[in-house]
Design a binder for these strands. Structure first.
Lengths: 368, 368
DNA sequence: TTGTAGGCGTTATCAA
DNA sequence: TTGATAACGCCTACAA
């Protein structure tokens, strides 16, 4: 039998302390706390009083051990400091919160090693599920086996990785890139270059293909000199910018925002400016892009929805939903501003109006 | 006595399974896993083999229950989607990681309710410590008492709140604001306005005071019409901008980046531009500010260091460091670009050079 | 409706 | 050096 012993003064009260204080059994206390079973009014009052008196709070660690559920989900992103991810994480956190879950956050820096370390840790901490933006490259077999073994649900975010799971919430990157490049072409650009993401990750590849097909559909040639692979970081955009601009493209599509910043720095150093010397369109939109120049034309991805949908799908899986694999593909949105010189090249006169409306709309939405 | 029973096929192996497999006691297994006590070579080998065979991973939840330590720290920020915080969180996560801790992330939206809910949850989940960017306003007494009772270390980030704890890692906001406003004055601005943060939070107040004292030191008047309180969000900067600009200030200091974006939108709607119609300086610097126009002159805060130092202080406390309260104040850094029209107003001719050097330096540093 | 006692997977104290 | 066994704090059959 268990000997609870007197409550030590310094520590916080346990369910036993409450039971003793109320003169009931731990079962009764547990039942009251969890609103289970039916406890007679009188006892319930007594228990509630004892709970208040001792300022009792259930120890969720102990509960997790007993329940085999932590109500915690792990989330692994490449880098929370990349401005793309905060909104995704925020969406996920909000959804998680609503369902009584918390987020354990890890950064992988797109490194397989860090990613695997993070996964092992999350599994050891017995998270109920994992949201993963997969780094490029394959897991070691050991890690895959381990994941199968513990049978924890995983939902992929932004990037697919079918070897692990088909459940994923992504954006239509092919379409986004396709639209972007077509827009450049419509704006009159003929020598269109690309600064793409790492081909090892699925969404970067999709964007490459969208770029490729859009060129073809627009009847434009693909000049290998105008195609450079980056890694989604600013530094790579900067280097790629120097390399690319020396070949004098008149239009550039950049696969994410950080690389765009790098490119613009390179352009400045080379004395080139946008949209005069080259048209520019990039992925990811942010509120501040509406107020600075050059006004970037971008393809916005629904970051917050991405996080929300991923978390909700994951939580459904955790709750035992075994319906067929769900890959949810959210639609991107072209936000036309000035960096392609759309109006100028296409011969329209309402340049300012187009921009005014678009930028205004975006900001209003962002301000909400 | 405990009856372990055969390992159920689906579940992952426990320490008992390993013990049985190796023909030793759980103590031995535990000793091997934790490199404690001295286990004879031969037994150790056997245990290690069994561990591999069963693919055993210690259950950290159970360990936490036994140890009374979770190796998890809770971090509460107003909003991870506010671009100021990702870098702080990243710094904290890196430091935590290095010491074997993980981060449970919560957003408070600067709401007392959400903040208290988050704290209760973190305490219930028995985090070893908390990093808190305090929302404005006082905790209910109950919450303070509860925190005292469980005696969990808390380190404040960015904002002090002495009623709770003196341990804090902050920036020298007074100095930063002071420098900013002095710079505006040096640039020849005479009617200087302020869009400040919510006076309820410590750092906003410090920035107000810096503004105030800098005006006085510069021999400039403080016009109440030119002083507006915002809440650090974009929307408030937008509204404040409309109100403020109608009074025709020739210089504006804005207490954070999001409000600056709002202000710029308002300015655009009113047909005013910076630095021609008004000089502008704001807090928080970001890599992209170096490539867009107007080139914002800002006061950068060492975001990453903030997170790192806070996490390390917290972990020291967790580890039993009881040395006297530590409020660490990190120094901000003025980054002169063009938005104050410094060179123009001050009559210097090296405008481009100044900007070029500064922006270049910043970007190089950011690119690293 | 309520109480008893065993189990969740570790660690840690005592003996052996 | 090792092995039993009692915590850790909660949940939950099974009994009463």
């Amino acid at each position: 039998m268990r000997k609870p012993g007197r409550k030590k003064s310094g520590k916080s009260a346990s369910i036993y302390d409450v039971a003793r204080e109320a003169g009931v059994s731990v079962f009764t206390v547990s039942a009251v706390v969890n609103h289970k079973s039916h406890v007679r009014e009188k006892l319930r009052k007594r228990v509630e009083k004892a709970i208040r008196a001792l300022n009792y709070r259930p120890n969720l660690i102990a509960r997790s051990l007993a329940n085999q559920r932590t109500h915690t989900i792990g989330m692994i992103v490449p880098d929370i400091a990349n401005p793309f991810f905060p909104m995704v994480v925020r969406g996920a956190e909000d959804a998680a919160q609503r369902h009584g879950y918390n987020l354990l956050l890890c950064n992988s820096d797109d490194s397989l090693d860090k990613e695997e370390t993070a996964i092992e840790l999350l599994l050891a901490k017995r998270v109920d599920g994992i949201l993963l933006t997969k780094a490029g490259g394959d897991f070691r077999p050991g890690i895959r086996q381990m994941i199968k073994q513990v049978d924890v649900p995983i939902v992929l975010v932004m990037r697919t990785y079918p070897k692990l799971t088909k459940d994923a919430v992504i954006t239509d990157d092919y379409q986004g890139a396709y639209d972007a490049v077509c827009h450049l072409a419509r704006s009159g650009r003929r020598r269109i270059g690309l600064i793409g993401g790492p081909r090892k990750v699925s969404n970067a590849l999709a964007r490459w293909q969208g770029f490729h097909d859009a060129l073809k559909a627009s009847g434009l040639p693909l000049d290998p000199e105008l195609v450079i692979e980056g890694d989604y970081r600013m530094e790579s955009g900067y280097r790629a910018g120097h390399a690319l601009l020396s070949h004098q493209p008149d239009g550039i599509y950049v696969a994410n925002h950080l690389m765009t910043v790098g490119l613009l720095k390179a352009a400045e150093e080379m004395g080139l400016s946008c949209p005069e010397d080259f048209g520019l369109i990039s992925f990811d939109d942010y509120p501040w892009l509406g107020v600075f120049r050059p006004r970037l034309t971008t393809v916005e991805l629904p970051k917050r929805e991405l996080g929300i949908e991923a978390a909700e799908l994951l939580i459904r899986r955790i709750s035992g939903d075994v319906s067929k694999v769900a890959v949810m593909k959210l639609q991107p949105e072209l936000r036309v501003r000035e960096s392609c010189g759309f109006a100028r090249h296409a011969g329209r006169g309402k340049n300012r109006a187009v921009d005014g409306v678009e930028a205004g709309e975006n900001l209003i939405r962002d301000l909400q």
